[in-house]
Design a binder for these strands. Structure first.
Lengths: 186, 186
DNA sequence: ACTCATATACCGAACGATCGGTACAAAAAC
DNA sequence: GTTTTTGTACCGATCGTTCGGTATATGAGT
């Protein structure tokens, strides 16, 4: 079993418990790997495991979301639709929490991972803005809409989790494409 | 010194480090109280300290926000403006993170505090919706706008913290009153 | 006025448990 | 037979919590 085998499980665990809340004992139990084996695959310990999880999430953005937005010049509405579908699936209809948000809210992990998290958000925002600019929107407004999309997704995940009711996330995901495309002329 | 003296410091600490990330050693150092003294004021230990912090935040909602919305029947725009001002101040222009979000994202604390957090969000949403219904808005749409306000605030806090740039939160707070009042006839 | 009792606020030291991490040899895999 | 992977035993540090006890102040009993 290669190191990559266990990364999805790590993502799930860090999402669920946070960085400080997730112990090596839990990881060992959930993966079925002894501590020695964990340190064989991740010599850097817990920090490296979290980094591997975070890197995998960032690669999801790179490989699943960015291509959709890169080829969106002609049909922004359809692209945002596809982006939202993929995002909805990634967050399991809103039941999963976002690793970025979890890590960013903990001081300790924030210091370790801020660069990667900040980069991911910026990249996603910029890609959305680029689609909108190509579609003829003002650059400042386009960037704001990219930010608004991130705000809507993150806020909806928090609210849905708080209420134990995923309808708000579903509604946000459904409305997001139109919201991004409003007043667009193409 | 009474127990209430230390609650604001507890709020700050739990916001900063999360539930699992905040140790009694840190609390002891930050408050100047020995660990044993902390147990004198909070016999229930760390859980009771977090509960006291959460209760205080919920009381902020009750005493600072709810009255604004309760007396808003005639002038919704001004009320939402005041609500946003107070919220902006509470979150220190976006530099503070939200205790609700911090606690809700950690499995352990979520189980302990879900009821209080869920109630707080519901209460705030319902109060906003009530203002909008009184102003003539459809009930379903009013409730959605209440949810959208929570989503915007929470999402903006996450994004601003992730980017180390509080402009998105500032923009959201500034735009929120108009967003809530759009298509209103009064 | 002078004890004595009670209550409040505080503290250092230590508890058992668990934390993240390591050393090393057995055992699988090739 | 060598490399990769793992189980076990172990480490010092820190976790949340508890114990035993001190200092001060208030108030009752006499």
């Amino acid at each position: 079993m290669s190191r990559q085998t266990y990364v999805p499980k790590l993502i799930q665990l860090f999402r669920q418990f946070g960085y400080e809340g997730l112990s090596l004992a839990k990881i060992s139990q959930a993966t079925g790997l002894g501590k020695a084996s964990l340190y064989h695959h991740f010599p850097g310990g817990k920090a490296e495991m979290a980094e591997a999880a975070l890197t995998q999430v960032n690669q999801w953005l790179e490989t699943m979301i960015m291509p959709i937005l890169a080829d969106a010049a002609s049909q922004p509405m359809e692209a945002f639709q596809a982006m939202c579908d993929e995002t909805n699936q990634f967050f399991n209809e809103g039941e999963n929490s976002c690793l970025w948000a979890v890590l960013v809210l903990e001081q300790a992990s924030n210091e370790l991972f801020h660069a990667q998290i900040s980069h991911a958000f910026s990249q996603w925002i910029e890609a959305i803005a680029q689609v909108l600019v190509t579609a003829g929107l003002d650059e400042t407004l386009a960037k704001q809409r990219g930010e608004d999309a991130m705000i809507a997704i993150q806020g909806a995940l928090i609210l849905s989790r708080s209420l134990h009711n995923f309808a708000p996330f579903q509604r946000v995901i459904k409305q997001l494409p139109q919201q991004l495309c409003q007043d667009l002329e193409t």
